[in-house]
């Protein structure tokens, strides 16, 4: 494997966004890119990351290799990379370590780290291609704000999506709160758009603890996409350049 990123920033932010949800995971490398799928310890949420080969310049991976990595250790190593550094990830065929090289843009500093790998026997879940009943895209910062505000009211949020908009409702001991985002196209700045597409109305409840955790990915993308169908996990997607993505799946709370 040899994968070179123009800016370490992307990889630093991806790892930062998932390290509190999952501790040890395999980065599955093959000729299509670097993928990761892992459940949190309580098996309520799932993270799925894809960094496509096109994300890297260049990308080379001759055979499939899983790189079992302790994300806490990886975070320590990535602290040594400045956001603008060129990052190269390298590994041999049957690796004991993954090699990370950080180069300053002006090429007068090269840092090189070897991170020990672990054998991780990871369960892999099959996520079927799903036609979601409702898809809502919104500014990632707005979603983060809504989740953190409602977490102060309750540990759960009900998300209701209709043609009129998407509503987040929390009911707590101190009272209730709700936030509605209506469909909205900002001609000046499409990052501010709220776009809803719906085949049938959806109403589901989710844990805000998990949702606020997913929002650690906010810096990766201007927009976040929520995909919902009744009685299936919510998908929260941060789309990245070159068809790469960071997706979180969260099982709903179900009625008594």
């Amino acid at each position: 494997l040899e994968a070179r990123l123009e800016a370490a920033d992307l990889f630093k932010k991806v790892v930062e966004a998932i390290k509190d949800l999952v501790q040890h995971c395999n980065f599955d490398c093959n000729d299509s890119g670097i993928a990761l799928q892992a459940m949190d310890n309580s098996h309520v949420a799932l993270v799925s990351m894809m960094l496509t080969a096109d994300t890297f310049t260049p990308f080379r991976c001759d055979r499939n290799i899983p790189l079992g990595i302790d994300l806490t250790s990886l975070t320590k190593v990535l602290r040594a990379a400045q956001s603008s550094d060129i990052l190269t990830i390298k590994s041999e065929d049957a690796p004991d370590v993954v090699n990370l090289v950080f180069e300053g843009k002006d090429q007068d500093r090269i840092s090189e780290y070897d991170l020990k790998l672990m054998d991780i026997d990871q369960e892999h879940l099959g996520i079927p291609d799903t036609e979601y009943a409702a898809t809502a895209s919104m500014p990632a910062a707005d979603f983060k704000r809504i989740c953190s505000d409602l977490l102060l009211i309750s540990e759960a949020v009900s998300i209701e999506c209709t043609k009129e908009g998407i509503t987040f409702k929390a009911e707590g001991d101190i009272g209730n709160g709700s936030v509605t985002l209506r469909q909205h196209s900002d001609l000046e700045n499409s990052d501010k758009n709220v776009d809803i597409s719906l085949t049938e109305p959806v109403a589901l409840s989710f844990s805000l603890k998990y949702l606020t955790g997913f929002c650690k990915a906010t810096g990766l993308s201007n927009q976040v996409r929520l995909c919902l169908s009744n009685d299936v996990p919510l998908m929260v997607e941060y789309a990245l350049a070159n068809n790469s993505y960071l997706r979180f799946y969260l099982a709903p709370k179900i009625g008594d």
Binding site: M39, L125, P252, D256
Partner: peptide
């Protein structure tokens, strides 16, 4: 707030 479902209730191990 209801009972928290598990992700493996929806997606099978592959």
């Amino acid at each position: 707030g209801g009972r928290q479902a598990g992700i493996t209730n929806f997606y099978a191990r592959s």
